[in-house]
Design a protein around this nucleic acid. Structure first.
Lengths: 220, 220
DNA sequence: TCAATAGTGTCTATTAGACAATATACT
DNA sequence: AGTATATTGTCTAATAGACACTATTGA
């Protein structure tokens, strides 16, 4: 689960219980859990359920990332995990409001420097790589903003994920030419001229642009 | 497992046993099977093993496609499958040389019209869609050819997958500018001028071009 | 010499980006 | 007015595609 927190691309981590029978006690991990065959009709349903429990968010952008399976990734034996990645607006309140287990939004660079539970470092790396590469040629960063948002805010969202500046004029042309945004009234900001607010027309799927940004990495 | 057979993008199908205890007896299905935790260290290893058993091919292009899990996809109960797709050169001999179970290379359009076992129609659709969309901006069709191959052959491979003609000059510029091919001596053909043979430098991963072909669908 | 295919050259329309200029808010 | 930000316009360099042309083989 990704969001922009403190001007940085951040990921939600949960702390594993300290109790010994569980593997990796006390370690930070990506949110997850076991499929419950009594309530999860599909893998996607399971991911949605976990996500709702953790964040209260109902309809984020959700995409299957991949599956990791093998003999050594869990000390309890051969196991397989199904990773999804979700994009959502920065939560107003910190994620810790559940009494259950501690969780926090951590900038991805920080998270990757920690030794996460299981093979979650590898999974997070893959997720960040996929996100960064898709941001070069899709509208994904729009899902990291609360609606409505302005084009300058959207541009900052792109720049935050990509870690480099983009040209304003070219950026606006790309977004408006793709015709995936609809106007949602003027928004006044703290300072300066107000800007048009937008929302994405179809929150189910991202828009794909015909090419990436200049000198941008190509999709993987 | 995809290949080009009879000038068409084709997929390997296997016939399920007629014995009743097995679900979907006698139906055509995508090749697959259960993970064997005693010999498959990872999911990827398992996919490689299945592929080798079915086709004898050792090092094709292999990519994880996605996972399908749910309560209704297998009559025996909640199940999860991990789909990979492989690209390989057209096998000289038909795939049926195993005495085990009947299998055949079928053009994808034909295969999709059949009622395959399980949810394999959906999986095959996803695979074809992924392949077609990635062909717009990657070097994937190079893996569908025996090496060495000529640029005209490579172009036909692209055109076969995409189902439309490409401009020769632009195509050659794209391939050679990407610098992912190395020369492998002249090849004489049945008729006309001989052509330079090429092989891909790195068979592990596909090359990504900075943009798609004109009017091509964008990557998904 | 002809048919067939491989390979190259030229021109043009498109467009992403650089960057300057203008517009609109608040103080 | 002056500052800060949003939005638009102009110019240019890069390039993909259209298409004509040349090159090299065998019959």
């Amino acid at each position: 689960m990704f969001s922009i927190s403190a001007e940085q691309l951040s990921v939600l981590l949960v702390k594993r219980p300290d109790a010994e029978p569980e593997p990796y006690p006390g370690r930070w991990a990506l949110p997850g859990g076991f499929v419950d065959v009594t309530q999860d009709a599909t893998l996607q349903d399971c991911a949605m359920r976990k996500l709702h429990v953790k964040t209260g968010v109902d309809a984020p952008y959700l995409e299957q990332l991949g599956s990791w399976g093998g003999a050594t990734r869990d000390p309890r034996g051969w196991s397989c995990t199904h990773a999804y990645f979700a994009l959502m607006a920065a939560p107003a309140i910190s994620a810790k409001d559940e009494g259950s287990s501690p969780s926090e939004w951590v900038p991805v660079e920080t998270a990757l420097r920690r030794r996460l539970a299981f093979d979650h470092n590898a999974i997070l790396e893959a997720a960040v790589e996929r996100l960064r590469s898709k941001v070069e040629y899709t509208s994904l960063p729009a899902f990291l903003l609360p609606v409505p948002f302005t084009l300058p805010q959207l541009q900052r969202s792109y720049e935050t994920v990509l870690g480099r500046a983009l040209d304003k004029s070219a950026f606006r042309k790309r977004m408006l030419d793709a015709d995936y945004l609809e106007e949602a009234g003027m928004l006044t900001t703290d300072q300066g001229r107000p800007a048009m607010g937008y929302r994405v027309r179809n929150r189910e799927r991202a828009v794909v642009f015909p090419r990436g940004f200049k000198s941008g990495e190509a999709p993987g």
